[in-house]
């Protein structure tokens, strides 16, 4: 070997799961190869097992009282902070999205940042829109307020960044905590997004990200008795969607059925209100 120039070894990132604010490997020790849209090898991602899903639900449940009890203002600030952190990693996301086959990766990252800012603004306004002071025929104040449902299991759509942000932000902005099963084909941006979440003052466990086989993990989440709602947006297989919806019926989980909306369009309030429950209070007046 007569080569004089030292070759620097590349330091590659290990893509792991995001559970309870930490980045563990899958309990099962499994991983799977992730390839680019052209079929080139990109990295090995963790292949989460049902026990990882169970651990993620425990973490989400543990985080729920703190997150749902935080003020709406505080939650909005943290969502805005996520947007800031995402903006700071723009170049990394553009590179990862381009490898995953996105055409206009830069626009997708901008749209994801804007989506977070848009939802951040809703944190202290959704109560006014989804709640009401109801007129009643009696000496009472009658007030309805939206409350978070609890732990939401989310199957993220194929769009690896904008789609993911568009399903996670509306769930957490209202005070729910969630377990997200990332896009199976392009999971790498979701783990990078988890790094953004971990550095955004978001309490550990509010968002938990699992990568791996949707077909393997989703049914366990849909059947889990400590999960309060499931968002099946990213479930492409009709049979799997039906099975998940049936399993979810056991403890009357709220279910958002699979859909493939245009993620760049105005999202509306539907995704927020889907995971809110209305509490109505009667308060006597006139005494």
């Amino acid at each position: 070997m007569s080569k004089t120039e030292a070759v620097r070894l590349a330091v590659r990132k290990t893509y792991k799961l995001y559970i309870g604010g930490a980045f563990p490997r899958s309990e099962s020790g499994r991983s799977y190869a992730v390839t680019s849209s052209k079929g080139d090898f990109l990295a090995n991602a963790s292949k989460a097992s049902r026990k990882d899903a169970r651990d993620a639900v425990s973490a989400a449940r543990k985080a729920f009282p703190g997150w749902s009890g935080a003020t709406a203002y505080n939650r909005g600030q943290i969502l805005y902070r996520i947007a800031e952190m995402l903006e700071g990693r723009r170049a990394q996301f553009v590179a990862e999205l381009t490898e995953a086959g996105a055409k206009k990766a830069g626009d997708a990252v901008d749209a994801a940042v804007d989506r977070l800012v848009w939802y951040a603004g809703w944190s202290d306004k959704i109560t006014s829109v989804a709640g009401a002071a109801n007129p009643v025929a009696g000496p009472y104040f009658n007030i309805s307020t939206p409350e978070p449902t609890g732990v939401v299991a989310v199957v993220a759509p194929a769009d690896p960044l904008l789609g993911l942000v568009s399903v996670v932000a509306p769930v957490i902005v209202t005070g729910n905590t969630c377990v997200v099963v990332a896009s199976e084909r392009a999971p790498l941006p979701s783990i990078t997004l988890a790094e953004v979440l971990a550095t955004s003052d978001l309490p550990g466990g509010v968002v938990n990200v699992l990568t791996g086989s949707v077909k393997e993990i989703a049914p366990w989440l849909a059947a889990h008795m400590d999960v309060n709602a499931v968002d099946l947006t990213g479930v492409a297989d009709d049979d799997l969607a039906v099975a998940c919806e049936q399993a979810a019926a056991e403890n009357l989980k709220r279910v958002l059925r699979p859909s493939a909306p245009d993620w760049s369009a105005d999202p509306g309030l539907k995704r927020m209100t889907a995971f809110l429950e209305t509490k109505t209070v009667w308060h006597p007046t006139g005494f």
Partner: peptide, 9 residues
Amino acid sequence: TGRYAGPDY
């Protein structure tokens, strides 16, 4: 049951 149980029950 084959389902993960929750403490609510």
